[in-house]
Amino acid sequence: MIEYEIKPQNKFSLGLKELWKYRELFYFFTWRDVKVKYKQAALGILWAILQPLVMMLMFTLIFSKALNVSSDGIPYPVFAISGLLIWNIFSNGLINSANSMVTNANIIKKIYFPRLIIPMSAILTALVDFAFALIIYAAILIYYHQEVSMLKLFLYLPLSILITVITTFGLGTFLAALNVKYRDFQYIIPFMIQFLLFANPVLYSSKAFTNPVINGLMRANPIASAIQLCRSIFTGIEVDWQAIMFGSIVAVLLLLAGIYTFRKTEAYFADLA
């Protein structure tokens, strides 16, 4: 016989035990979102591949051909796609999760389950897109005859994805909680994403800056760390592990801040949404 109490929320807890109990919901929410996203589209899941490909071609044209941006000695398309893959997890994940609580308001108002599942599944949806986009990544690596160290590929790539997911999750839950309370964030987030695309070394090399302050900020930026890791797989440039460490610490701090804010306001989502 289970016995539990319903009472005003006083103390803070992560609720991991409950998340585990409801683990199947992660799968169902992600599955639903992926399915619904591509169901009405004629090309279906192909869009997950086409989007980064088109972006890569566009940026190659602008940054490499027109502006002649340095790409750490590798072909610019390879350089761009490795940044864009990480960037897409981050930006799609962030947009999905920040809006997730509002789009699922009708469910939140009627049924209880750990609310964290919603923004988490939203990020998992972005990861599914990423998994498909990896096909284009592999194709480009082969096309440009990039030498890849298998050890690095299987070590650095998962690590960079992990850092990205942690960062996205931290910021995503934070924004999701604020978005329920202040709908203004619906308008702020698109600008934020545009700004962040240029603030992160997605399209240019992180070595482009000489200003020590900006360099310091870059080193603490978890997305920059993830991109650097992802690129070092084939650039052969030594990884700046100190920067990776800083980035990871910032990522974990963001995660804690995000979950804390979310859990603190979670109980009142149904009243506010």
Binding site: I2, E3, I6, K7, I107, K110, I111, Y268
Partner: peptide, 25 residues
């Protein structure tokens, strides 16, 4: 059904609760 918390007081439950607050959710 734990959708919203009480301001004060408590409820002791000795079993799983499922709610059909509105079917089709």
């Amino acid at each position: 059904s734990k959708i919203t918390p009480p301001t004060s007081g408590k409820i002791i439950c000795r079993g799983r609760i499922a709610s059909l607050l509105e079917v089709g959710t």
